[in-house]
Amino acid sequence: MAGVMDSVNQRTQLVGENRLELLMFNLNGRQTFAINVFKIQEVLKLSGLTKMPHEHPAVCGVTNLRGKTVPIINLSMAIKMPPITPTSDSTIIVTEYNRSVQGFLIGGVDRIVNMNWGDISAPPKGAGRNHYLTAITRYEGTLVEIIDVEKVLAEIVPYNTDISDDILDQNILSQGEGRRVLIVDDSPVAMGQASSTVKKLGLDVVCATNGLEAFNILKGWAEQGIEEIDKLLMIITDAEMPEMDGYMLTTAIRQDDRLKHLFIVLHTSLSGNFNKAMVKKVGCDGFLSKFQPDELAEVVQSRLKSVIR
């Protein structure tokens, strides 16, 4: 099992090339699910489980991993499927999202596959399980459903978009009228989090669900003239998205003479140290780990301050 993750550190060259690797797995049936390898710390057997009082129903307990207490989430139950019964032979995927570590109880690991973001699309609109997907793809004829882990976690630990009073600088914010922020994210939950915080700063928000959509919006503004581009205070983009990821979006912007000066912040739940290296590689202006409303507000206010001097 450990061999599945042995070469993860060798895969960083895929990022920035509009590629990713997915860990494919199953839950309580034959359907194949996946999450991005870069969000995974390890895959292992569940060594022990301690039930805790007053936990969310989808949290089946906690386990000890090298001295740290890690909650174990019954992923099948969390996405409204029949729950998996944990046993000593159960498999867990240990992940890090939004500065927290958690394990997801799954049925079993299939394989790791190398994919192009261009081959991954948004899920069809509708009810049911699609509500918990950020994307779908096909691999060797098999439908693969990519889970919106941020939504799963937001339902278990509700998020807060409030900004601390001591963070807000009203003198700066009063001069932000008419300026807009482009937020790019394929997760509706993550989009809602960031949009809510930015709107509280009195700025207009434009949303795009992937890098390609965002780049087309930017090119449309550029064609309308410099005044439209000048209204844009900054771009806040997720890293992993269908069709065009945040790294490739940044590269495309930097290669367009009309757009290359734009201020871009990478806003992602992926590993902080890894993304700091990628920020430098592709030319982002900053990095923010999801989801910290005070830190997001500080970055936006700092950018606003720099353009009104």
Results as ranks from 00 to 15, higher is better:
G3Y: 11
V4M: 07
V4R: 03
S7C: 12
T12I: 09
L14Y: 13
V15T: 13
L20H: 11
L22T: 04
L23R: 03
L23C: 09
N28A: 12
T32Q: 12
N36C: 02
F38A: 12
F38G: 10
F38T: 15
Q41C: 09
V43D: 02
K45E: 10
S47I: 11
S47A: 13
E55M: 15
H56V: 14
A58I: 08
V59Y: 05
C60M: 11
L65N: 08
L65D: 15
P71L: 06
A78V: 06
P82N: 03
T85D: 08
S88Q: 08
I92C: 10
T95L: 01
Y97P: 10
Y97A: 07
Y97C: 09
G108L: 02
G108S: 14
V109R: 00
D110I: 06
M115N: 04
M115T: 05
A122L: 14
A127K: 15
A127Q: 14
G128W: 09
G128F: 09
L133F: 10
T134Y: 12
E140A: 05
G141H: 02
E145F: 02
I147G: 03
D148W: 02
V149L: 03
V149Y: 01
K151Q: 07
K151P: 00
A154L: 02
I163Q: 07
I163F: 12
S164F: 04
D166Y: 10
L168D: 06
S174M: 07
S174T: 09
G178T: 00
R180F: 09
R180D: 07
L182C: 01
S187Y: 08
S187I: 01
P188Y: 05
A190Q: 06
M191P: 02
T197M: 04
T197D: 09
V198A: 01
L203V: 00
V206G: 07
V206T: 03
V206P: 05
T209P: 00
N210T: 02
L212K: 13
A214V: 03
G220V: 00
G220T: 00
G220R: 05
W221T: 00
A222H: 07
G225L: 09
E227Y: 01
D230M: 13
M234E: 06
I236W: 04
E240K: 08
M241D: 01
P242S: 05
M244T: 03
D245A: 07
D245E: 11
T250Y: 00
T251M: 10
T251R: 05
I253S: 01
R254V: 12
D256G: 02
D256R: 00
D257L: 08
L262I: 12
F263P: 01
V265Y: 00
T268M: 01
L270Y: 08
G272N: 04
N273D: 15
K276I: 08
K276A: 06
A277C: 11
M278P: 11
M278Q: 15
C284L: 11
G286R: 01
F287N: 07
Q292P: 13
E295L: 12
L296D: 08
E298D: 13
V299P: 04
V299K: 10
Q301Y: 08
Q301N: 03
K305N: 12
I308F: 08
I308S: 11
